[in-house]
Amino acid sequence: MDFTLKIWRQENARAKGRFVTYHVTGISPECSFLEMLDILNQQLIDKFEKPVCYDHDCREGICGACGLYINGRPHGQDDGVTTCQLHMRRYRDGDTITVEPWRAKPFPVIKDLVVDRSAFDKIIASGGYISVSTGGVPDANTILVPKEDAELAMDAAACIGCGACVAACKNASAMLFVASKVSQFAKLPQGRVEAKERVKKMVAKMDELGFGACTNTGACEVECPKNISLSHIACLNREYFKAKIL
């Protein structure tokens, strides 16, 4: 298969970026999207040009490192997959594909398609955990968790922190990311103890870092590679009101 690629190139955070057009030919339909970019990079290296920078690591959809804005959609057109799980068989021979980095103020571009997502770590550091230290905890089976609650907590905990929700949101809101953590712990008895403090701190940090507000558009849920439900945002709002008002 042959493709025309329009890729965002930007030397560094301060430089001005632009789209550059490339052509790749003879791509196998079994090739993953990132493997197709590897092939492009090999071509560039052969010409002594700088290869395109993009984040990636596990290449099996779990580390959350990769994240490309492909034809106007985070992680491309497929539902429930990360960029690294996208395959070229999903495109038509001869297609033109536009590839951009995540676009959001709290995620500044570092180079080409690589953005700085350290804001997510800052949100977690503000309270996205249960404050127990190593040692001195009860036997695991003394904390009983109803199966449905454990399943709901796991649904929320599946978040990989890739940032697609922020990139998809017209307000660059991190509500789905924050909700996934708040909701995971809110559903577990271990997490209830400091639920109020947690939600207040995490929401305050999210606001401070410049993420926008949620207007219930739902783009985040549609684009989330782990299909994390918007209902967790409802849970976050509930927890927030409980902490602030009740």
Binding site: Y129, V132, D139, A140, P146, Q184, L188, Q190
Partner: peptide
């Protein structure tokens, strides 16, 4: 396992 449960790891549960 005790430590991970205390830290909120959502392990699989029985009914």
């Amino acid at each position: 396992i005790d430590q991970c449960v205390a830290r909120g790891v959502p392990f699989a549960r029985e009914y």
